[in-house]
Design a binder for these strands. Sequence first.
DNA 1: TTTGCACTGTTAAAGTAATAACAAACTATG
DNA 2: CATAGTTTGTTATTACTTTAACAGTGCAAA
Lengths: 212, 212
Amino acid sequence: MKQELIKKIPHKTIERLSQYRRALLLCYDKGQTYIFSHEIANIQHITAVQVRRDLMLIGYSGNLRRGYNIKDLIDLISEIIDNPDGQKVAVFGMGNLGRALSKYFKDRREKLSIVAGFDVNPDKVGKSYYGVPCFHIDDAKEIIAREGIKIGIITVPGAYAVETAKLLVEYGIKGILNYTPTPVEVPEGIFLEEYDMVTSLEKVAFYVKEAK
Amino acid sequence: MKQELIKKIPHKTIERLSQYRRALLLCYDKGQTYIFSHEIANIQHITAVQVRRDLMLIGYSGNLRRGYNIKDLIDLISEIIDNPDGQKVAVFGMGNLGRALSKYFKDRREKLSIVAGFDVNPDKVGKSYYGVPCFHIDDAKEIIAREGIKIGIITVPGAYAVETAKLLVEYGIKGILNYTPTPVEVPEGIFLEEYDMVTSLEKVAFYVKEAK
DNA sequence: TTTGCACTGTTAAAGTAATAACAAACTATG
DNA sequence: CATAGTTTGTTATTACTTTAACAGTGCAAA
């Protein structure tokens, strides 16, 4: 897969590739070897055209009669979205949400793993949650450097989101996933993704109201 | 606010309105009475033009010299996105994520509140988490009907997502927020919003890798 | 062998969203 | 009272995303 090609893949396609891979892994585990675009589409909430278009963008060609080779496609998607050397992640804020994420990602992805949690609560520091050791935030700098952690998930209370993000950038984190409702600022070159559960719920509430 | 106008508001604008209101509430609590479009924009990650365009869509006019009246704008946004009679929400799956949401929404919105949690674990049933009572899923039908719950958040393990969604629809839920990585199907007329943490993290990992 | 079917791969069109451009309005100030 | 500065409200443009249309291909079956 050429570098220039990868640069042109739209954000939305990257997201769908992640979802395709998940669906494909399930099928692969069941022993299925080939799959049609409309089968992938049925698993996710999209159309077969969308699937074919996405696969076209990554330069994968299927078999006209049998569809796509599941194993090959999984490998190609992995080649695109995974870092061959692996990617280490840390969670900042080991509250309910931080622990939910720790549990969730436990042994899910070979190339992507949460290796540390941070908190300020002395009751949590020193403990381990679902295999993720919890450290004091004061030790973050050292541990991030030592482990080579490049990605940080922010799950601290909203009031501390901004300062946490600032620290992470200072400590060398290159990608931030902010789950607090407070938007944070990052300098150029740091990838930021924010998701706000309050907004999502209010959106659902709005459309439920409107549907009446 | 006219009904036809509301119908034409784009999804993205609805999401931003929720975020504007949050920012406005903070300013209002600080005693600020007027705010400029670029001030709102600075709080969120958007441009002043975007803010003005969104407010145009909902038909709100600001003061040319002082900007927007914070109180009035909060009221107007609330009139649009809130249900005047309130909206009750239930969480299905009181694991870490379910409890995180329960805690998070505790007393946050007057018109939108989580009133019940459901689980199958007998250790959880009968307990209360952050003010949200946990019931057995077998009692969901009755409680949903009795309380008039219209929105369900799915935080069960992915393997149970599909059947849970099916149950909710059967029990009269009109809007679903699915936080499992497993896509679910809902019939026409039921609003569905899905968010997948795995995809988000993989997306961050991809762009961190590419930035190197 | 040829006809029909069921796919894929690609280009074209439509729909949606964000950005830019700019006129109009108000106020403060000299 | 005129002028400069600042901000709003709206239209126009551009960019992005999805959906539609359709040609091309291989297989199966008559």
